[in-house]
Computed example of a mutant assay.
Amino acid sequence: MKHIVYYLTLLFAMTQFANAQPTKKPLRVGVVGLVHSHVHGILNKAFKQTGQTDIEIVGIAEPNRELAERFAKQHGYPMSLVYATVAEMLEKTKPEAVTDFGRIVDHKKTVELCAPRGIHVMVEKPLATSYADAQQMAALAKKNNIQLLTNYETTWYGSNHKAYAIANTEKSIGDLRKIVVHDGHEGPKEINVNKEFLDWLTDPATNGAGALFDFGCYGANLSTWLMHNQRPISVMAVTQQIKPDIYPKVDDEGTIILTYPKTQTIIQASWNWPFARKDMEVYGQTGYVFTVDGTRMRIRLKGDKNEQQTEATASDAPATDPFAYFAKLIHGETKADELTSLENNIIVMEILDAARQSAKTGKAVNLSQRAQVR
């Protein structure tokens, strides 16, 4: 009987201790804009995933009331969360961080409003529509000591991180010689993106370009990472309007060539692939590693008679999703990943800006003659 009383007392004490432990509060997040279809990821996480404690959406800034109501019905959030302007949402809800799902050209405005308030920012890729805007955003972030991240779907692919480890940490394929990145799909209209997304995505003023920016940014991001944030010597790009009847204002096909001292990167960005794809090929002096998708990979090392197929796991990536990572970063539980880093994405914007210039003039842009801005 004494033993039973002892164990019951111990169990009660342990329960009380556990209940007394402070619960980590979720990151208070404001959502800026609903016109980028990637917003469904954070809305699903916040309002449909039971038991998730990483983030709490405290406000949504969206002037298009009809769009906000449509998504409210789809995701189940109350319209009381919706504000007409970013400034009002920030003042009324006091978020710790915001995630921007607006037009790319508006990313700068978001940082201008958030940085002086000490509010961290994560934008969807790419960082900006111009290198000049990206530089100003970076200066604001550094001055106000906030995190300014760019979210790419491919950052959360375990395969990319395993490929990086094979190429750069383990150095299993020798010095890098060629990187080839393929990204895109059949086209935004062809895959039936919603009208609000299509309108700005196919406007060079609001998106920066067409497929060149929409999907070229992935390759620039990955190449910069694999090359340890080294700027390329030169950038050469060719764009086409294969479907001018559908995309009269922007390119739907883009190829970018980056030259480094002993490496070359080819970025193939397209709204004309027969199927959606986000994969890459990394060739070294003695072997290669290919990513097929987020998990599947193909590898051939020195001495191998045939290539091997392998798979990465979720643990190879820094987090399961960008918002869990964002919360951990701001709560001091992890350090910034190079793929989402500001340093990387300033170089990405320099590459994209130069690619746009090269495609227009038909000439390569020599970056080695420019001073690097940090």
Rank of each mutant, 00 (worst) to 15 (best):
T154D: 04
D245R: 01
H182E: 11
V193I: 14
P204I: 04
W200E: 02
N151Y: 05
S223I: 01
P204G: 09
L176Q: 04
E196R: 07
E186Q: 15
W156R: 10
I257C: 13
G216P: 09
T224S: 07
L201P: 00
T259I: 03
I256L: 08
I179L: 15
H228A: 14
N229P: 03
I256P: 05
G219E: 00
T255I: 10
S223G: 02
G187Q: 13
Q240K: 13
A163H: 10
K195P: 06
Y260R: 05
S223Q: 00
N151L: 05
G187W: 08
Y152T: 13
P248I: 07
F213S: 03
T154N: 06
N160T: 10
E196V: 12
W225D: 00
C217G: 02
N194Y: 14
E153I: 04
R231N: 08
E170V: 05
I257V: 15
K162P: 02
I246W: 02
N207I: 05
T155W: 06
G219C: 01
G208T: 06
A167M: 14
E253H: 07
F213H: 03
N194R: 14
V235F: 01
N221Y: 08
D251H: 14
I246G: 02
L212R: 03
T206A: 10
A165N: 15
S234C: 04
I173M: 09
C217L: 06
E253R: 03
M227Q: 05
D199C: 05
